[in-house]
Each structure stands twice: as C-alpha cells, then as structure tokens.
Amino acid sequence: MGMGAASWIKKHGELTWFLVLLVLVGIFATWSLEEVVSGTSTNYRFGLPLASGVPRPLPNGTLVVNITAYQWGYTPDVIVAKPGQPVLVVLHSRDVVHGFLLKLPSGTVNVDIVPGTLSYVFFYAPNTPGNYTWRCSEYCGIGHSFMNGTVEVI
C-alpha cells in the first residue's frame, strides 16, 4: 500500500494539487467579487471608490459628506452621524495622494484619494455610539502620521 500511494503521488500528485488550488481560486475569487458587486462587503461596497459604485438611489436618510484632504489634514475632520445611519463620503485631494482608513466594528473602509479624481466611500455608521477615528493610509509627506478625523456616532 505504501508503495502504491507513493507511485500514485508520483503520477497524479501534482495535477491533483493544482486542481484543488484551482477550485480554491474559483471559490474565493467568486465569493469576493460577489460581495463587492452586491454591496454586502463592509470593507468594500459596490466597487467603490468609483462613483459608479455609489448605490442609486441613496438609502433614505443618507448623510453625504464632502471632505477635502490636504497636506496634512482633512476638512471637515468630523462627521456626526446617528447610529446605523448610511453615510456617503466624497473625498477630494487638494494636493497629493492621500488615504482614508476607517476601522468600523463590521469591517474596514480603506480607499486612496487621488488628486484630480473623486473617491467615494459608503458605509453604515456603527450601531454603538462613540468616536471612530479615520487615518490617512497612503504616505503623503512628513505630516502623514498626524492626518486623522473622527466619526462621532451619537
């Protein structure tokens, strides 16, 4: 039996493993894409940060916030939202590439803000009231570490 297994591995081992991996690739690529397209991924809804991914029509009660990023800060740097309120953030950079990384209890929102293009972020404010800090995630110069803002859920 031992030799039988060894010779089977020699003959088919590699192809079998490749097929197993292909199946895994199929499963995870489809699963991920399905979540992006259907908008069920907190991290990454509807193919954002392109405008084409913004849900239409916007859910009732959506708070739309326009934020300008610059070296080194955001204006406005506070978003006040109600628990569970849908929020659409439209990001614009005045100078260089910046980032927007917001860790929410249900996932992480993380996009880059490219000058000359608007980036869109859509998320639901957490159900638990509190302050949630977003930070710049793309290196943008010496003040990079000090670029942040707060989502106040009250």
């Binding site: 493993w17 690739v25 992006v36």
Partner: peptide, 24 residues
C-alpha cells in the same frame, strides 16, 4: 484602493490567485 472599475478588480483578484496557485 484606487478608483478602479469592478471588472479590473475581478480580473486582478482572479489572476493574482492563479499566480499563487502556480507557486503552490
């Protein structure tokens, strides 16, 4: 994390995993 259309994302997702399968 850049503003890219979904079809590019799907393509990159699948092709990168395929490359990883080759390394596997």
């Amino acid at each position: 994390v850049w503003p890219l259309p979904v079809w590019i994302r799907g393509f990159v997702n699948a092709s990168t995993l395929l490359l990883a399968a080759g390394s596997g």
